[in-house]
């Protein structure tokens, strides 16, 4: 067993510097790497490019980094659930690249899988395709999109072991699996770090080969963005 376990978030994030590009898992606030984000706030690294489906809310998730103006560029499919984001975007302080959601995840997966680029029908005929190569296959038009290049991927799983194997829960899986192994270093934080051998190999969602560092996270808030319930 190759040991990927590190003591804590500080050790897990060694090497993080200004002007780096990060991938961060999560959909809305669901399945975001809370410990890594909180530590980035503490490290106060600046000039960051963040690849993440969304950009958090004012006081949680990536909104915390935006608030401290640590982010130079966001690459996302849907943003603006927070006022500070809107302000920085409109004032030109923040650069934003909007990418169709399926293209966003596939650009991560391409980086993970060794594909430099791929053709997708998404965005053909729209401003997303401007300046990009397009090609016809079997009578339908496709746009060439490229794999991302990132320094770190920060992902969050439900359970994991020291070998780096990961298991996700519910819809908290989302972008996390495709980001594993898609950056130079993948840091996985888990709610529960279990003994090696206790996870059923049949049930592992991401094999440890895609993860360089793993640690058990602390104090998960797991905030709900839109609590929608039926009265009993």
């Amino acid at each position: 067993m190759i040991n990927k376990k590190v003591a804590d978030v500080t050790e897990a994030m060694a090497g993080v510097k200004d002007d780096m590009t990060f991938m961060l898992g999560g959909f809305g606030l669901c399945g975001i790497p809370e410990n890594a984000i909180n530590h980035l706030v503490k490290l106060n690294v600046k000039g960051l490019t963040c690849i993440s489906n969304n950009a958090g809310v004012d006081d949680f998730g990536l909104g915390l980094l935006l608030h401290k103006r640590q982010i130079k560029k966001m690459i996302s499919s849907y943003v603006g659930e927070n006022d500070e984001f809107e302000r920085q975007m409109l004032s030109g302080e923040l650069d934003v690249e909007l990418v169709p959601q399926g293209t966003l995840v596939e650009r991560c997966r391409a980086a993970q899988s060794g594909f430099p680029a791929f053709f997708t029908p998404a965005g053909y005929g729209t401003e997303v395709a401007e300046g990009k190569e397009v090609r016809e296959f079997d009578g339908k038009m496709y746009v060439l999109e490229h794999a991302f290049k990132a320094d770190f991927a920060f992902v969050k799983a439900w359970k994991g072991d020291a070998a780096g194997n990961l298991v996700f829960k519910g819809t908290a899986r989302n972008f996390n699996p495709a980001m594993c192994g898609a950056a130079k270093i993948t840091v996985a934080e888990v709610e529960e770090l279990v003994p090696v051998g206790s996870l059923d190999p049949n049930q592992i969602h991401i094999p440890g080969i895609f993860v360089q560092r793993i640690f058990e996270g602390k104090d998960y808030e797991k905030r709900i963005e839109q609590r929608t319930v039926i009265k009993k």
């Binding site: 959909f27 809305g28 606030l29 669901c30 399945g31 489906n53 959601q101 399926g102 995840v105 596939e106 991560c108 997966r109 439900w158 996700f168 829960k169 519910g170 819809t171 908290a172 899986r173 989302n174 972008f175 996390n176 699996p177 495709a178 969602h205 797991k222 905030r223 709900i224 963005e225 839109q226 609590r227 929608t228 319930v229 039926i230 009265k231 009993k232």
Partner: peptide
């Protein structure tokens, strides 16, 4: 979900809390 049974790890694309039906499955964005 019924009040009190919502799960932060179970939402729809609108970020609303949901439930699943028998036969449901979870998968990643890719």
């Amino acid at each position: 979900p019924f009040e009190g049974e919502e799960d932060a790890d179970l939402i729809n694309a609108g970020k609303q809390t949901i439930t699943t039906l028998p036969g449901a499955s979870f998968f990643d964005s890719s």
